[in-house]
Design a binder for these strands. Structure first.
Lengths: 343, 343
DNA sequence: TTGAAAGCGCTAACAT
DNA sequence: ATGTTAGCGCTTTCAA
């Protein structure tokens, strides 16, 4: 934590002013355009600035009380790989609007989320994009969020939030999957998921089974210990432990992520079980290679592209007019049929 | 761009000092520990701060000339999906050390990289992590990088850089792949890649073929128009256009990414061609599901975990001691054998 | 152990 | 069109 003896900015506005023989204020105006400056003066200022390698100090601007042109992202990078696309698109779009992006992972943990938000507050970001489950929206987190000039929340559970938010409902798609299985004559339908992390999805699945009179109950759920979608060994272990004899008692399998589904298809294939003839398989998240598996994998599309557009629009419109009321957009995920789902 | 009439910090150090009836300096000292403060005074200050909801203004600190506790990341998020793990690990590790992360995508473009670096300079980040090909390291970019107190570069081409850097050499692994194919009796070895984006990899591949006296020359390269690893339709198109009759004239195929390899395996499989018996396949990047394909996919591991450790260590050690000389660590990627590569 | 003064770089507001 | 003043919140330096 040593402090540099030399000031950061060897040539600030004051220095330019001195060399160009004008007042600092005129230099400031020449850069910001906040008031007219004689063309000749401006030219002189610019050439001096150029020569001196002037670079504005954004902290001074921020201290003075203006916008910081920065957005804080608080997300989990341990969920879907598709979060990378989200990140990239937000970064690129924000940069076009001259915003800089801070990134932080809340680790699925309230304390961690709070800490990041406090950090963002101390850095006076203009806005925050928060993605996480309802569980993370503690009272404290909500009150911290309320301190930002602009907030957009991305969540999968319909909540009643005082902020603009996008709801990526997953349950409708899960119901679509169950309905599809049912309509094509499947009756022993199973769901492979980490029950702890997927409470709502599991509940929706079970509920939809019941609506068709298929109440195998807990037997329908194949629990697994995966922590993230890239936790492939957990998927294999789950299959092995649920079906130690390699003869699964089911005719349809929905998985909570495509990675699990792909691995399930391999697992079945190597045991002489045909997909979709013997067992239909549907994944989740619609990762790019799903479509290109030996048997194209049906999945559920998150509609991330639409989501990103909406999120950024929400944020930018609040930047423009802090007075507009919080809005809410629903972007339910969509079942994407492909061969693996069967007829 | 409206300016708030109300100052950001409703209760800064000055306000606390007023209420606690001490000087601002004492409050500052109570927080920073830069000088002893009577226990009783400190307690009073802390309780007032708590009550007032004090939150330090990091811009004021930065303006004063100290560290900003921030690191700028300049990378491409459009290359490997494994960049997400890199991002996540850097973010988490940096947070433990009380650094905040800025993220920016250079889009593979020099102008864009320059702009991001200037932005980071204006925000006085303590350090920069740059990942990109040698092509991006223009004179201007290098001189901008030189302005930061700490820089770490991640590159795949051995370069002579004045900064600490990690070299992720890919060519050694490609040579290993070719050698393996050759050793197992394959003689019609092909490489599926975007030639434009993979010049060095292609060169290494061709060179190694020649070293074995296998000079099919340009015929060995199956060019494709993919822009990124998730560009799956490009992979299919490439296969279709190179082998319109569905009877590929080869016995071994190396692909520039695992996604392409997985798709190639499906493509071959659906044409009755067996992997690895008829054609051996090796991917690149060792994505998590590679191992779990119907035929486990051989690949090349990037050693990202090791890389991240080294990169952060380089940065942190320079934070501690700005005087230490730039270092360089080589982490050549490694061929990972699995069934798809054949005996 | 505490306080007073000064200034980091910038710009709103009020002169001229 | 340009200049002057003042202050954002913090911490270094010097003084008590």
């Amino acid at each position: 934590m040593s402090k540099p003896r030399v000031p950061f900015n060897q040539s600030g506005i004051v220095e330019i002013a001195r060399v160009a023989k004008v007042s600092p204020m005129t230099v400031s105006r020449a850069f910001s355009g906040s008031a007219p400056v004689a063309a000749k003066t401006r030219a002189r200022i610019m050439s001096v600035a150029e020569e001196l390698g002037y670079r504005p100090n954004l902290h001074a601007r921020a201290l003075r009380g203006g916008r910081t042109q920065s957005i804080g992202l608080l997300i989990s990078m341990n969920s879907t790989p598709s979060i990378l696309k989200v990140l990239r698109n937000i970064t690129i779009s924000a940069r076009k609007e001259e915003y800089v992006i801070y990134i932080s992972d809340h680790l699925g943990d309230v304390a961690s989320a709070e800490q990041s938000l406090i950090e963002y507050l101390e850095r006076h970001v203009d806005g925050v994009i928060f993605q996480g489950s309802e569980r993370l929206l503690s009272k404290k987190v909500l009150s911290l969020l309320a301190e930002f000039p602009a907030v957009t929340v991305i969540t999968s559970e319909p909540a009643d939030l005082p902020f603009s938010h996008v709801v990526q409902d997953r349950t409708a798609a899960i119901r679509e999957v169950v309905d599809h299985f049912y309509a094509s004559g499947r009756r022993r339908i199973r769901y492979l998921a980490n029950v702890e992390f997927n409470e709502r999805k599991v509940a929706a699945f079970l509920q939809q089974l019941e609506s068709h009179g298929l109440s195998d109950g807990e037997k329908s759920i194949l629990n697994m210990n995966s922590v993230s979608d890239s936790d492939c060994s957990a998927f294999v272990e789950a299959l092995n432990s649920h079906f130690p004899d390699g003869r699964p008692d089911m005719d349809a399998l929905h998985c909570s992520c495509d990675e699990a589904a792909i691995i399930a298809m391999s697992w079945l294939n190597s045991r002489g079980i045909r997909v979709p003839d013997d067992i239909a398989v549907v994944g989740f998240n619609n990762i790019t290679i799903a479509e290109y598996q030996a048997v194209p994998l049906a999945s559920v599309d998150r509609r991330e592209d639409e989501m990103i557009d909406v999120v950024l629009q929400m944020l930018y419109s609040r930047f423009k007019d802090p007075g507009i009321p919080a809005s809410r957009v629903e972007l339910p995920m969509k079942f994407i049929w492909r061969e693996s789902a069967g007829s």
